[in-house]
């Protein structure tokens, strides 16, 4: 547990910053909803008729005038992209940084096995993702109470669950990448998150590219789909979790055998 506590301590400021930023933006959106609600019907009609732009962000399928519809689009993009960036950032550097910062030598000379190193660092990544999601959910729910709107619990909780699972997948994949790279990991991790986001936009725009939703975790965490269908697509989640787990397994295999350059 020593390494886990060390990682959590090291990441404390980063976790607070990301959580506060994402939470603040989501709270701002929710707090603005009552002001915008009156105009939402006309805005919703306008957004729904903007062709591919509407389809890209799911605005052709849900109403901007309802709290869950507004939340899915506005807060969904914040937590979706922001959460993906956060998970990628946490995971992609956590193994590689010991080589980059030349502290690998410290770890290698102490009675800590590589499996323990990987496991405790993975636990630190997962814990940070859990904490960020719990706090942002609490901030969102708190904001909804403040504005006095009736909370569409099922849709809100489903969306948050989907974003959480999406972050787990991206975190798992980036954790695997962290075992292979020595530097430049942040660019790769954030690049993967952005690419996954845009793949979902492409899938939303083009019927021919709909299969791409099975590749990107933004496919099963698309707020518009969740509200429309009333559920998260289980097959997409299973594929996503399998990819995340594959990343974690790759990390174990690579890191335990890697010739680490202190």
């Amino acid at each position: 547990m020593t390494l886990f506590k060390h990682e959590m301590k090291q990441s404390k400021l980063s976790l607070i910053t990301w959580t506060a930023s994402i939470g603040f933006l989501m709270a701002t959106c929710v707090l603005l909803f009552p002001e915008m609600k009156g105009e939402m019907d006309s805005v919703s009609d306008m957004f729904a008729s903007m062709g591919s732009f509407s389809a890209a962000f799911g605005m052709d399928r849900i109403s901007f005038g309802s709290l869950d519809g507004f939340y899915a689009i506005e807060c969904g993009n914040i937590l979706g992209l922001g959460g993906a960036f956060f998970a990628a950032y946490c995971a992609v550097t956590i193994l590689a940084k010991e080589e980059k910062d030349h502290t690998a030598e410290f770890l290698m000379t102490h009675p800590v096995s590589r499996v323990s190193i990987i496991t405790e660092k993975l636990a630190a990544v997962l814990t940070q993702i859990v904490i960020m999601n719990v706090l942002t959910l609490a901030i969102s729910i708190g904001s909804m109470y403040i504005v006095g709107e009736e909370i569409p619990w099922k849709n809100i909780l489903l969306m948050h669950l989907a974003y959480f699972l999406m972050q787990l997948e991206i975190g798992g994949i980036c954790f695997g990448i962290s075992a292979f790279v020595r530097r430049g990991g942040i660019g790769i991790g954030l690049g993967i998150a952005v690419m996954m986001y845009f793949l979902n936009i492409v899938a939303n725009i083009s019927d021919k590219a709909e299969f791409v939703k099975y590749i990107t975790p933004f496919g099963f965490s698309d707020g518009a789909d969740i509200i429309t269908n009333g559920e998260i697509d289980a097959l997409m989640v299973c594929i996503g979790m399998a990819l995340g787990i594959a990343g974690i397994i790759a990390a174990y295999i690579k890191y335990t055998k890697k010739d680490i350059n202190p």
Partner: peptide, 19 residues
């Protein structure tokens, strides 16, 4: 390796510590 490292201390020429 863990048994050996528990008996050992290593001091490098240029220690890279957690700044």
């Amino acid at each position: 390796p863990l048994g050996c490292k528990s008996m050992l201390a290593y001091i490098p020429d240029n220690p890279d510590l957690y700044d």
